[in-house]
Design a protein around this nucleic acid. Structure first.
Lengths: 221, 221
DNA sequence: TGAGATTACCGTACACTGTACTAAACCGCT
DNA sequence: AGCGGTTTAGTACAGTGTACGGTAATCTCA
């Protein structure tokens, strides 16, 4: 008789983490339980524990998987171009995996891919002539912006262009009292304009930050 | 015989949320379960459900509680001062309640305090002469930075000044291979310097962002 | 060849979670 | 005294992570 195990690709730590990522993408991080994960892989819960110590290790692992998807910046390249590219790459990775930013906060055991990513980013800034101090400042600033933007994006109840109308309707209900005129204004005159996409706001802040860093780095602009 | 109920302040939605906040502060958001919350209030799990519909409502509620702690900016004040103050206030609230930023991502039903806070902030920028567009840009930028900084701060395994040495030791272990020289450099020459506090990085980015906004707002600097 | 060790996987069980359902106790009324 | 709404509890159930132990196949070495 063919066992369940013989009918599917063999288990491995890699495959466990890959399946965990796709499961979290498709059904949300709350749906990522040991049982559903095992079921989605055609196996039983306890089988997974041969490859990972516990669920925390899975969570650490999928965060690192997200970083492993992000192309590394090139330390020899133009720092501004590289940092802009990197910012967009990180953001799009966090948009593909919206649960990741929520995990960042609770995980503090960075994996290999994460460390490599940080190393390459720091190297790019240092190679471009940033002082140690300025590098630390710049990195904290850039990542804060990227992560924070991802948090806001993940909190949005709509996705992308054109579907912004829904979020405002429950808010508009409270507006019969006229309590929030400025929010209405922003909604009507900005967010609800056709073609609006919150994601487009990302470039504005990114440019402002990179401009500021340029000035401090003493570039000839 | 004195019942448990007669020996403690009466339950109320307010008190449930207050106790939920202090429990999350003291023991982490994972420790905030209906059972532990009820126990900490001297009552039984199901009693809480008279005041809140379900746990989600508690989570929404405590996020709003955090916002309610934050003093509102004054729309008539100098916008830059008000925004700087607000940024520090929000950050310190998120530091008092590190679990809050993790909830921001998953909650999308803003409460009264949250809405009031947004309204006051938007009003400050608009009153200062920011266009609707620039207001939206500025707000997204500032909040991204603040939230993202809070995420990073919450992920740090140490708190405040001087205790940074511990985080680096597990990393330093991987450094026998020399794989991460730039991270070592930053650690040794910046993070491990006496008196270093990651929180101090906040002001750097905040100044840079406010400078950039000043320029765009056409101020006389 | 065959016995023992190792690898890969799984069944059962337990303490814990959120919460639906039910019932009891308390309160201010007439 | 007794009624009806308000508040508090008890019990029960499905779902969670995972400790502990077992099984079957594969590998190692005489």
């Amino acid at each position: 008789m063919p066992t369940a195990a013989s009918q599917r690709p063999p288990l491995s730590r890699e495959r466990v983490l890959e399946c965990a990522v796709t499961l979290a993408d498709e059904s949300g991080i709350d749906a990522l339980t040991i049982r559903t994960l095992a079921h989605s892989m055609g196996t039983k819960p306890m089988s997974l524990y041969y490859y990972v110590a516990n669920k925390d290790e899975i969570l650490d692992g999928i965060v690192d998987m997200v970083f492993s998807e992000i192309e590394l910046p090139a330390p020899e390249g133009d720092w501004r171009e590289e940092m802009e590219l990197r910012a967009h790459r990180v953001r799009s990775a966090l948009r593909r995996h919206p649960w990741a930013v929520g995990l960042l906060e609770s995980r503090s055991a960075p994996g290999q891919a994460t460390l490599r990513h940080h190393e390459a980013t720091l190297a790019t800034l240092r190679t471009a002539g940033f002082s140690v101090q300025l590098t630390a400042h710049a990195y904290a600033l850039l990542d804060s912006y990227i992560y924070g933007f991802a948090v806001q994006e993940a909190a949005l109840p709509f996705e992308g262009r054109g579907t912004a109308a829904e979020i405002t309707s429950p808010i508009v209900e409270r507006f019969s009292t006229g309590e929030y005129p400025r929010m209405v204004e922003i909604a009507v005159e900005h967010v609800l304009k056709p073609g609006y996409d919150f994601g487009d706001e990302f470039q504005f802040g990114l440019d402002l930050i990179l401009d500021g860093l340029s000035r401090l780095a003493g570039d000839a602009d």
